[in-house]
Design a protein around this nucleic acid. Structure first.
Lengths: 67, 67
DNA sequence: ACACTTTGTAAAGTACACTTTACACATGAT
DNA sequence: ATCATGTGTAAAGTGTACTTTACAAAGTGT
């Protein structure tokens, strides 16, 4: 699943580490999600959407890889 | 995380098994989510929202248990 | 040149989101 | 009474979403 976390993060000018603290996960987790290594849990997706004040659907783009 | 899957399912008049087939998981998975045993993956949440033609935020209610 | 911040990555471990198979129970139809 | 359908639950297994610790590399400031 694709995402623009890096862009949203840039808009708010926060580092991976700061975002991680804000949403309650490790920096490595934010990094892994940004780099597409895995998708966040639904809970983390909610936290991220809350932080960026947007909808989950705005952050994550399902559809693409429906194999 | 709370959800009204059972209600949405009732509105569309589909069984757990039918819904499971539609979104590509096992019946037990739908049952477990409905009964609150665990939360769906983000991917499954997207599938469910697509099936019910609503937003993920309409199906799942984060907030409640923010300990 | 040295320190500091940010990002990428790795390894080993834990927890949970799934699977399959299987069985019990309730309801409704024949 | 039997059969089919829908739901709840259990056990054992797999993959992945996380963790912590740790190190390498690039960029920026002094």
């Amino acid at each position: 699943m694709e995402n623009d976390l890096k862009v949203w993060r840039a808009k708010r000018d926060v580092t991976q580490g700061e975002l991680a603290d804000e949403v309650g996960v490790s920096r490595q987790t934010i990094n892994a999600i940004e780099r597409g290594r895995y998708d966040p849990s639904l809970e983390l997706a909610f936290e991220l959407a809350a932080f960026f004040d947007c909808r989950i659907e705005d952050l994550f783009d399902y559809e693409a890889e429906n194999e």
